[in-house]
Design a protein around this nucleic acid. Sequence first.
DNA 1: CGTACCACG
DNA 2: CGTGATACG
Lengths: 265, 265
Amino acid sequence: MLTVTSVNVNGLRAAAKKGYLEWLSGCAADVVCLQEVRAEEAQLTEEVRRPAGWHARYAPAAARGRAGVAVLTRREPDAVRVGFGAPEFEDAGRYLEVDLPGTTVASLYLPSGEVGTPRQDEKERFMEAFLPYLVKLRAAAAGGGREALICGDWNIAHREADLKNWRANRGNSGFLPEERAWLSRVLGEEGGYTDVVRALHPDQDGPYTWWSYRGRAFDNDTGWRIDYQMATPGLAERCLKAEVERAASHAERWSDHAPVTVVFD
Amino acid sequence: MLTVTSVNVNGLRAAAKKGYLEWLSGCAADVVCLQEVRAEEAQLTEEVRRPAGWHARYAPAAARGRAGVAVLTRREPDAVRVGFGAPEFEDAGRYLEVDLPGTTVASLYLPSGEVGTPRQDEKERFMEAFLPYLVKLRAAAAGGGREALICGDWNIAHREADLKNWRANRGNSGFLPEERAWLSRVLGEEGGYTDVVRALHPDQDGPYTWWSYRGRAFDNDTGWRIDYQMATPGLAERCLKAEVERAASHAERWSDHAPVTVVFD
DNA sequence: CGTACCACG
DNA sequence: CGTGATACG
């Protein structure tokens, strides 16, 4: 059994002030992947940096206060790797991988973009460099009799069911045809990964994992499903349960994203 | 009778959220001089911009969110002037003058400095340009049978009694020998102004008008007296009462400065 | 709208 | 330590 949770915390220091640690203490997962930590380890309190009972590995961004991913594991990982080989994104705080027995788990924070800005170009460069890595990772895992799970904020909604207002967002970053096509490659023959939440919930809208802080997006459930756990075939087959932990109320929210939890047999 | 209050609000928008308007509604003054407004009029709510019963004139800084002085008057001023003729400080949001019958009242925010930095040089340039203006203002007022009152944050403690830790601050901006000597010139033969709070309270420490937000400065009354009302001789003679309105508790504070109120006959 | 940074005080 | 600017999301 392996239970993995992934959540974009939108600033770990802010999240810790609003209930992240209480949430973590009730979290039964074996592995927790965090994105948008937005802090270096030295800026975190000891309790937040290494919660009791967890091993914690961080990959902060070179730019202070930006991005940053982490992985918490109940047992010490066998190996830890930062980045995926693309020089531009080596110190971007966007990819961290840990090896556990039989399985490699990664925390990913794919850049968010905005059409017509350099940030969209950066997002596309990331996507272009990352897909070959995913292919290589899957092959390497298969060759070594291992599985891989890429958790995180992919900043792309794949299909119309993956966001509330898909019509209005056809021209917006996060739901562009080329972004959706790229995710289809990750999930198709080329990548061979499975979106395990969608695999277990094929016929519903959402479940959304992100709601803008602007307006009443959360209250109206005007959300996007952009946080995924993408599993190699052998691992995907073992998926028993997959769910998104939407906060009960706006007041209980400690991030604009919700945790995504998957239980593997 | 003329009652004048002066206070550095340290951001009028923040002050308004913490009790400034409640304080103002209990304020019996005829004129209120504000410093560090840190906003343009358009950024203020109508209620804050023009409180009921007041006329309000603003002199914002060209740099957004910096400095900014204002004067509130119960009756419409006869004239309003921004700046004191020094080109460098014309749009600095540091000086605003209003004419009321028989009296000119000014709101001043003298630059704060830091030894060894360009900001200290700026402070000194301001002082150098401002003293001749004060001399000219006094002469012009006298020639026209008027009085003048310069209220505000002068960012200099004059004597040892004007700050709690004078020994430790001998080398710090705000209590440098040259700054103190400059204030002595304002208050001596050259300027001819009277520090009316000190005139009415000659033998006490303080009363302080500013306490740093750092540490427990307010609770320990580790303050500085840097906010003054400086009056021309005829007006100084009419001073009946002068006091500093220290907030009762840290929780009641809506600025790091306290209002200075003077009643003239 | 919220979390960070920074400059200023 | 707090205000407000800015970048990012």
